[in-house]
Amino acid sequence: MKKQSLPELQKICSQLRRDVLRMVHAVQSGHPGAPLGCAEYFVALYFDQLHHNPDFQMNGKGEDLFFLSNGHLSAGWYSVLARSGYFPVAELKTFRKLNSRLQGHPATHEHLPGIRIASGSLGQGLSVALGVAQTKKLDKDPSIVHVLMGDGELQEGQVWEAAMYAAHYGMDNVIATVDYNGQQIDGPTEKIMDLKNLKAKWEAFGWEVIETKEGNDLAAVLAGLEKAKSLTGKGKPILNLLYTEMGYGVDFMVGTHKWHGSPPNDEQLSLALGQLEETDGDY
């Protein structure tokens, strides 16, 4: 895929946000907040960072791979997959509907190109990413495995089992990104179950930690991912703490957990879309 300029990529972010809002609005269900906050990350990965092939192969040999551990960001993932050529953009309109390949949470069962494992029950994606990364090491495949987790998701114990494994086995072909938006479904993470010093925690587990403080600034996200890539192959797994704002891009949705799992109504949708340019054609 030809690399695109920053303004071009920014336009895709706007379109992704429109897709997410229209998708959850159409079925009046789904999770708009977090994928709005991760638009820059998704676009940076799929349109710039990943060496990948939209002619989908399950085993992903020779490709960089991405796993979405926090599966409720499905609307954002589906949008970026469609916009980068994995399946027709028009299929986004089937999101969460009966007989759709675009299940509420990502699944392989319906054979949607781009999805390699089901996610939704939290805490499992890092383990899966490490498994395939281990396979790449066995096969002398130098490509990189990315995984995105939510910050609230880090409350799951399995994540820390996986964190220990990754450092023990020197999984330096893995870049795990944490969507550090400080929100979870019941409220701010620090009130629900305080994550305390995440950087220190991951470092103590033996990871190389970088911080991307401006997670909704595309240039910063790209720079963070570049830096993460430059740290691969040095014996340690890499953690990218991506500071984002849930609901970013829509003034009345930003920075609150209220839009974690609630769709906009007709009026709210039109208000929100008014703030986001249609750049690549709505589905």
Partner: peptide, 20 residues
């Protein structure tokens, strides 16, 4: 994998999708 069965199952799933 150490005493970490949940991670072991996830690792195995990842290895399987990678062709092992």
């Amino acid at each position: 994998t150490g005493i970490a069965e949940a991670n072991m199952i996830g690792l195995a799933a990842g290895m399987a999708l990678g062709g092992k």
